[in-house]
């Protein structure tokens, strides 16, 4: 299908252009802050997009998705601390460990549905959180400083603000493209079919859980990449990135932007993190504003911001 020209697609296209041109704006105005802010936004958008793959398209309400942010981050941090600075080793390890963790908790938690699934994914993420807190060799509760960013043999310099921003943006676009291909593939249709009516999918000959598990692993792996980026961005990784409130933040981004919409999580991450940033200048209780905003979205705009735009363009 050719993408149609409607409000939500137009917003997505404009957004992409704005994100690509952001470093130019930053260089002209000398506003460095905006570049670092949007680096963070791009990373969280990638994490939220991966959550959207299982939550929006797959109907799997994982409440432990931030675990992969930590796992990807710790893979980079621990390897760096042990003297392995090459990104060519750090990043594949980060992805592999995230995939393995997703395979393990997916195989167990996908036996359950609904509230139990939410609770079991939450429990696993909290376990990861406490394990990280107990890693006294790697900072324990206080976290682990990454003294040197991943080294890609001069190919790209992660300590350069602009280069690192484009790397994050490239990972985000790459992740979105991958998700877009997956969602429209045979595999993606099966996963969405299972979300819609599992019994029916079994009856026509699909082993539903096998597809759900693979989808769960793909999402975890993509989020592990976001974790590796995040550790490089903050030069630091701590158990806090895995805490359940962080998983909640990711869910809010997805719901705010629009579940089951490709660009929804990107819009959600931008709006959520910008609001948080803006509100923090006026009040330390930014949740007082963010909470009601989310409430309104859930009550009156089920498809999130992207859904709202879609309805507007249909008139």
């Amino acid at each position: 299908m050719m993408p149609k020209l409607n409000a939500s697609n137009a917003v997505a296209a404009l957004l992409c252009i704005a994100l690509v041109l952001l470093p130019v704006y930053s260089a002209i105005t000398g506003n460095i802050f905006i570049l670092t802010l949007f680096t963070r936004i791009a990373i969280y958008a990638l994490a939220a997009a991966s959550l959207n793959l299982i939550m929006g398209y797959g109907g799997m309400m994982s409440f432990g998705h931030a675990a992969y942010l930590g796992i990807g981050g710790y893979a980079v941090g621990i390897l760096a601390a042990e003297g392995i600075g090459s990104g060519f080793i750090q990043w594949p390890v980060a992805l592999a460990v995230s995939a393995l963790f997703a395979l393990l908790i997916g195989a167990l938690s996908l036996r359950t549905r609904g509230v139990y699934f939410i609770m079991i994914t939450l429990a696993f993420a909290q376990m990861a959180y406490y394990v990280a807190s107990a890693l006294s060799r790697y900072g324990g509760d206080d976290g682990l400083t990454v003294y040197k960013r991943s080294d890609f043999a001069g190919l790209i310099n992660l300590s350069d603000r602009t280069q690192f921003y484009y790397l994050c943006l490239g990972c985000l676009f790459g992740g979105l493209y991958l998700i877009w291909r997956i969602v429209n593939s045979r595999f993606g249709l099966v996963v969405q079919g299972v979300r819609s009516n599992e019994q029916r999918m079994q009856a026509i000959g699909f082993h539903a859980n096998r597809y759900r598990l693979v989808c769960f692993v793909i999402a975890g792996t993509i989020c592990g990449l976001a974790g590796a980026l995040l550790a490089n961005n903050t030069d630091f990784v701590s158990p806090a990135v895995m805490y359940w409130t962080r998983s909640g933040d990711l869910m809010v981004m997805v719901i705010l932007g629009g579940m089951g919409s490709l660009f929804g999580p990107v819009v959600g991450a931008i709006v959520y993190l910008l609001l948080e940033e803006l509100l923090s200048q006026f009040t330390e209780y930014s949740g007082l504003i963010l909470g009601p905003v989310l409430l309104l979205i859930v009550l009156f705009a089920r498809g999130g911001i992207m859904g709202l735009l879609g309805r507007m363009s249909r008139g």
Binding site: M1, R181, I182, N184, S185, R186, F187, G188, L189, V190, Q192, G193, S196, N197, R200, M201, I204, G205, F206, Y211, V214
Partner: peptide, 29 residues
Amino acid sequence: LKDFSAIDNVALAAQAHDGHSFRFWGNAR
């Protein structure tokens, strides 16, 4: 599948009997 089109419902049934569906890239539609 209520939120799928009629033809998607039927095509998925055909797909179920055309080998496994671990194909991640091509557009199934």
